[in-house]
Amino acid sequence: MRVVAERAQRRAAIRALLPPVGRSLPWRLLGAAAGLGLVLAGVTRLVPGGSGTAPALVLLRSVAIAFALGAAFLLDDPARHITAVVLCRRALRTGLRMVLVVPLAAVSWTGALLLVPRGIRPPAEDVSLEAAVLTALALTTAAAIVRCTDEPQPGPGVAAALLAGTALAMLLPGRWALFVAVGAPGWTAAHQRWAALLVITVLLGAALLPEPIRRRRTSLRAPRRSQR
């Protein structure tokens, strides 16, 4: 019975958190990133006869970067110092933010893939893996900043780091290359590296979600001090 009661309390807490968490999300930035991605993907249909697989791959990678830049602002919370004393764990609040954005990300990315004509569309699974890794890197970097600093809006710094990291990744030598052309000998090996990077990033991001114990204790003591 105790387990059932705890589950009921958890569900009630989640239902209570959904509206405020939803209102705090940067929907304009996320919508702008999704819209830009769809526009970029739609460029492939503006060229008579198609633009070719290589340009389509470049455009889809640009779409992935646009989505990741939008995700970089997902953990921005101007009221962070107020919500720090909320009894609900930060991992739950952050998880709800991600869950609320998943439908938008899924629909936008699917729409971008479908906008590219089938004849010139790069392998959808491999390009989707690249997009997932870029988004995961943005979220994990934001989670690291939130955990290790008091910065309420890590988005701009994460976006700048993501752009710089992507530019550097394009310069990696063949043995370590991530951005490989379709049909190149290293395509399969590159996406094995993408898959390994995704696993590492997700595990690291999950480890960064909980609030540090010391900071949590300090936050819980803060209201008592203010009442004196």
Rank of each mutant, 00 (worst) to 15 (best):
A161D: 03
L204R: 11
H81F: 12
V116L: 06
A64V: 13
G155Q: 06
L139M: 07
R28A: 08
L163H: 04
G37A: 11
V199W: 03
M170Q: 03
L203S: 07
R61Q: 15
A184N: 08
P122M: 07
S108R: 00
G119E: 05
D76L: 08
L36S: 04
S226C: 01
R23K: 14
A195R: 12
L87S: 14
L40H: 03
G31F: 00
L69S: 14
G111N: 02
G155A: 06
R193I: 02
P122G: 05
T53M: 04
A66Y: 06
A136W: 02
R215Q: 14
G205E: 00
R97L: 02
A124K: 13
C88F: 03
I200G: 13
C88P: 09
P78I: 13
T140Y: 04
R175I: 07
P20S: 12
A190V: 04
G111W: 01
P123V: 12
A136L: 08
V146R: 15
L75F: 12
H191T: 00
L198W: 12
T166H: 09
C88I: 13
A159D: 12
R216G: 14
L209A: 13
V127A: 13
F67H: 15
G35V: 14
A143Y: 10
C148L: 09
T53H: 00
V146D: 11
L198C: 09
A105G: 15
L172A: 11
L36V: 10
M1D: 06
G35M: 05
P19A: 09
R7M: 07
L198D: 05
A167G: 07
A33Y: 01
A181P: 04
P26T: 13
A41I: 00
M98I: 00
T44Y: 13
F67L: 15
R61S: 02
A184V: 01
G37N: 08
L38Q: 01
R121K: 04
G95H: 05
L30C: 05
R193P: 14
F179G: 03
A138Y: 05
A132G: 14
L171H: 07
G52P: 13
L40F: 00
R118E: 09
A177T: 01
P103V: 15
V102I: 14
A16Y: 06
P156D: 01
A207D: 02
R215A: 15
F67Y: 14
P19L: 10
L209R: 14
V202H: 10
L113G: 06
A112V: 04
V43G: 07
E130K: 13
L163W: 10
L25T: 06
G183K: 10
G31W: 06
P223F: 08
